[in-house]
């Protein structure tokens, strides 16, 4: 497979002016502005092949969205080279724009007061999609995303999940080869998140599209991405397999218990590290490879009402990476 996205030594710095809060702060800022350089992205290099799905992990403000914006051509880099589908993104050539799409879960491109189908018609004209291709794309997206019942409702009357499905459809009508997705499942309920993930997997399978996404939901990243990038303070600190990352960062899983009688920490500590106990509920951290054995033991020795085994939240893994500098080069 060909390399479709190639980034070498990408940097993006911003000058922002600092303002002290309050009226006098504003007054002071009028006369003497203090500027500060924010290093949003610094010396990032990677290559992505056609058809790959790659997830970006990193806390808020790490530079994930900035990288997506540079790749899609909205921002031009302070330094380094970016090539997507053989184009320099920030030239924003029409032939380039036809091959990519950017979906931002927190923003919308649909016309708010009209049914989504109106926005689709506009996009059809803007991307100069032929009637045949348009009908085929519409049919495919309507089937995959179950759009039928929502197409003719005004966008402002749609639920968040319905709207997100329409946003995806509007962003994919022109069958882009490269998808940049910034938090595509934010705010959606679990079922809807799963629906969006299935859709993305199916779209990737059918059209061989390359997908680069950021998400705060571990489930998204686990379901979609074999490969992940971890970004910290604008630097790429990990590029590789998701599984090895999780094992490397978090050798434990959590067992959450609900018992029929109150529990105390001392009794539980022989099973694993006790993270919390409050009467009938407890959480244990147990080494990955021992989780099923420990769960079986717990069932045997305590009268268990409910038990769940979970990976740590991505936020927790991320915060461990960053507070404990686990991936520092």
């Amino acid at each position: 497979m060909n390399v479709q996205i190639s980034v070498s030594h990408l940097s993006k710095f911003y000058e922002v002016h600092q303002k002290e809060p309050g009226f006098f702060g504003s007054l002071k800022a009028l006369f003497a502005r203090k500027y500060e350089t924010v290093r949003a992205v610094e010396d990032v290099s990677f290559e992505i092949r056609e058809g790959e799905i790659v997830g970006f992990l990193g806390p808020n403000g790490a530079g994930k969205t900035t990288i997506l914006k540079v790749l899609s051509g909205l921002l031009f880099p302070t330094g380094g080279d970016v090539s997507v589908c053989g184009f320099r993104s920030f030239d924003r050539k029409p032939e380039f724009l036809r091959q990519i799409t950017l979906v931002m879960g927190q923003k919308n491109q649909l016309i708010w007061d009209l049914p989504a189908s109106e926005s689709f018609l506009v996009n059809r004209a803007v991307y100069e999609i032929s009637q045949g291709d348009y009908l085929a794309a519409m049919k495919e997206l309507t089937d995959l995303l179950e759009l039928g019942p929502v197409l003719n409702k005004q966008v402002r009357k749609l639920s968040l999940g319905e709207r997100m499905k329409c946003e995806l459809a509007a962003a994919l009508l022109h069958r882009p080869h490269v998808l940049f997705l910034d938090e595509p499942t934010i705010g959606l309920d679990v079922t809807m998140q799963a629906r969006v993930r299935e859709f993305l997997i199916e779209y990737n399978r059918r059209h061989g599209a390359t997908i680069l996404l950021t998400s705060h939901y571990m489930a998204d990243v686990v379901a979609l991405c074999k490969r992940v990038f971890v970004i910290d303070h604008g630097r790429l600190v990990y590029d590789g397999d998701l599984e090895s990352l999780v094992e490397r960062i978090s050798p434990v899983k959590y067992i959450r218990l609900v018992a029929q009688q109150p529990m105390v920490a001392e009794d539980l500590s022989r099973f694993g590290e006790v993270r919390s106990v409050e009467a009938f509920k407890a959480t244990l951290a147990v080494p990955r490879e021992r989780t099923s054995a420990v769960a079986a033991q717990l069932f045997e020795l305590l009268s268990i009402e409910d038990i769940t085994i979970e990976d740590p939240e991505v936020e927790e893994i991320i915060s461990r990476i960053f507070t404990e500098k686990l991936l520092s080069k």
Partner: peptide
């Protein structure tokens, strides 16, 4: 101000 202009800039028009 709300950033939806970005979507317009990403279209070939």
């Amino acid at each position: 101000r709300l950033g939806s202009l970005s979507f317009r800039l990403l279209k070939p028009m």
